[in-house]
Nucleic acid binder design. Structure first.
Length: 305
DNA sequence: TATCCAAGGTAAGTT
DNA sequence: AACTTACCTTGGATA
């Protein structure tokens, strides 16, 4: 295993690894201590987190293990690849300048409290297919269970990798996932999401469509593109745009944000997803509105008011 | 111990 | 285009 660290001085605006990984943006990382995912908020936050890089994203075309831990002053890492810092920077957006982003965001009381509480939390940049499947699975589901679904999908269908006697699994490719039957996926407790995941995997595997195709389109066109996948409506599309495809202005209108709008920004409620989305995006500052959304989401979900 | 409820929504059918 | 309804599963709350 290669190892190293990223010093705090290279992380403009600080870093909160636990909030970044456990805030419900990504379901493709795990806590190495096997503590219940989504149970760490009162815990301490210096656990190792690990993910497996898909073979399609590595220099070797093999899956690679990546582990990382915040030790209070710096981001330590261990990996089967020496390219770990580059992968960490991409996946956890280490080169985002949070000070600039916070400064560019409007001065709203709720937002200020959320920024203060979780200062250092970054957006993630998940692999698009994994992000797409994760958020299809997120419908009417709790964070810890969404995570469990992705872990089971990886274990059943993803590439295996053995390191120090332990076996890890990459999230499956569309080609690996498409052959699964609806019954297979229901056995993994996906419930009614099973046929959505299967049909979406088939669409990607056959080349009919790919989430990467949305990249670069004007924001609302990109969202519209993603809704062609089965199980993907406006909200899930916004999540993929924000957490995988670099659309930092995307504001997923989930139940928590809907509540926040009703309570704090009622004038932004416009009756339709499209118009409400435009209004709240404007209220949260436009270009980085998705960053603001993620802070508000996590702040409210963890008991902030 | 049994029952109920809600969880980061979406698709399909009606009006 | 706006409005209803069904949908799997399960941990945690309530009786």
């Amino acid at each position: 295993m290669h190892e190293g660290h990223v010093p705090e001085t290279e992380l403009a605006g600080g870093f909160d690894l636990q909030a970044t990984v456990e805030s419900g943006q990504t379901y493709l990382w795990s806590r190495a201590d096997d503590a219940m995912y989504d149970d760490g908020l009162a815990w301490g936050g210096d656990a190792w987190y690990e993910t497996v890089l898909p073979a399609t994203e590595t220099e070797t075309n093999e899956p690679e293990l990546l582990r990382t831990r915040w030790d209070g002053e710096r981001l330590a890492w261990e990996s089967t690849t020496p390219q770990a810092p580059e992968h960490l920077t991409r996946l956890l957006r280490l080169d985002d300048d949070l000070d600039t982003i916070v400064a560019a965001t409007p001065d709203l009381p709720l937002l200020d409290r959320a920024f203060e509480r979780y200062r250092g939390m970054r957006l993630v940049r998940d692999p698009p297919f994994g992000s797409l499947v994760s958020f299809i699975c997120s419908a009417q589901m709790r964070v810890s269970r969404i995570h469990g679904m992705q872990m089971r999908l990886a274990r059943e269908y993803g590439d295996a990798l053995t390191v120090d006697g332990r076996t890890y699994h990459a999230f499956p490719t569309a080609e690996q996932l498409a052959p699964a039957t609806e019954a297979d996926l229901r056995d993994l407790s996906l419930g009614y999401r099973a046929p959505y995941v299967k049909r979406t995997a088939e669409m990607v595997a056959t080349g009919e469509a790919h989430p990467d195709e949305a990249r670069g389109l004007p924001y609302e066109e990109a969202r519209e593109y993603l809704t062609r996948f089965v199980g993907v409506g406006d909200k899930v599309a916004d999540c993929v745009l924000l957490f995988a495809l670099d659309y930092l202005e995307a504001v997923p209108l989930d139940t928590w944000i809907q509540t926040a709008i009703a309570e704090y920004y009622p004038d932004c409620e416009r009756g339709s997803y499209r118009e409400t989305s435009r209004a709240i995006r404007e209220r949260l500052g436009g270009a980085f509105a998705g960053y603001a959304q993620t802070y508000i989401f996590f702040y409210l979900r963890t008991g902030g008011e």
